[in-house]
């Protein structure tokens, strides 16, 4: 079972969308040890999903598991910010407090 549930919203297959997908794949493999369940949603095809999650900007990454839920906006090119923003840390035994 995957440890991380990630949803990535994009608008069409623009260079920015592709870049975001690429960056997320890399972070998943390198920083999250591949323990990801990754879902890519194109808002042009599924606007209803974007309504439910109240998405404005694309790309938007939502981490729903493990809690707490976190959102990252942008093409995810800034890996450090992505990891901090997602409350994800590569050191598994470090408690939450120590991370801050």
């Amino acid at each position: 079972m995957s440890k991380y549930a990630l949803k990535l919203y994009i608008t069409g297959h623009t260079p920015r969308s592709l870049r975001a997908i690429e960056n997320l794949r890399r972070i998943c493999e390198q920083d999250l040890k591949g323990e990801c369940e990754m879902k890519v949603i194109d808002v042009l095809e599924q606007p209803q999903m974007a309504n439910e999650d109240k998405i404005l900007a694309t790309p938007t990454l939502i981490k729903s598991l493990p809690p707490p839920s976190r959102r990252i906006i942008g093409d995810l090119s800034d890996t450090r910010t992505v990891l901090l923003g997602l409350d994800l840390h590569t050191f598994e035994h470090t408690p939450m407090k120590g991370c801050e």
Binding site: R16, N23, I72, I73, D75, S77
Partner: peptide, 26 residues
């Protein structure tokens, strides 16, 4: 498109408001 006070959002890289536009069009 109101803000969810419990939802923290971080920006990491360039973005657009494509989702908002798609939702409005829809």
């Amino acid at each position: 498109a109101s803000i969810d006070p419990e939802q923290e959002t971080v920006v990491a890289g360039s973005f657009d408001l494509g989702a908002l536009m798609a939702r409005i069009e829809h």
